[in-house]
């Protein structure tokens, strides 16, 4: 009988404890800096090296670019199919210019699979939103341009 009573005591002791529920839609979780949500993309930095598309284990990235007048490659289209993307972040690992990065957007639920094909513009909007939401994570250089992520994440 003793263990039975002890169990009842344990459950009763939990009653006054602080509740752990996060009131989700009203109250959003705070994600750490390394959180791997949906990608964000900075088209200006991209050199169309194709490494992200090659390293992707699920082949969900497709991109195309053209050589501009200054002999530099410029990105034309950059699409990620979030239907099959597993958010493994290997693409951000290999990106030499850090033009593709992970954001902390995580709500992608939608009524149609077609809506999960996200293009360069959406991804850039996501980047802008990320900059707005986390100004403290961006250090500004002398000219006041947003330069890069704060140290710590970059390898």
């Amino acid at each position: 009988m003793f263990g039975f009573m002890k169990g009842l005591g344990v459950t009763l002791r939990q009653l006054p404890k602080k509740k752990v529920t996060l009131m989700y839609p009203e109250q959003k979780p705070v994600w750490p800096e390394r959180f791997r949500g949906v990608h964000r993309f900075i088209p200006d930095l991209c050199i169309v090296c194709n490494q992200c598309a090659r390293v992707c284990p699920t082949d969900c990235i497709s991109l195309s670019g053209t050589r501009g007048p200054d002999k530099k490659m410029r990105i034309d289209t950059y699409d990620i199919n979030f239907d099959i993307c597993i958010l493994c972040s290997l693409c951000t690992d290999v990106c030499p210019t850090e033009s593709i990065l992970m954001s902390d957007t995580f709500e992608l639920a939608t009524y149609s699979r077609d809506n999960l094909y996200l293009d360069m513009h959406w991804l850039y909007e996501n980047e802008l939103a990320y900059e707005r939401n986390h100004p403290e994570r961006f250090v500004k250089d002398a000219e006041g341009n947003v330069e890069s992520e704060k140290a710590g994440d970059a390898e």
Binding site: R34, F35, R36, I86, L87, C88, S89, G152, D153, E155
Partner: peptide, 25 residues
């Protein structure tokens, strides 16, 4: 784990030869 690797379930954190990141401060 979320703090160190950026994910809560599928961490993809170990790499051949070490780890993906160092532990944050």
């Amino acid at each position: 784990f979320n703090e160190i690797s950026g994910a809560r379930l599928t961490y993809n954190f170990m790499r051949i030869g070490g780890l993906r990141f160092d532990a944050p401060n």
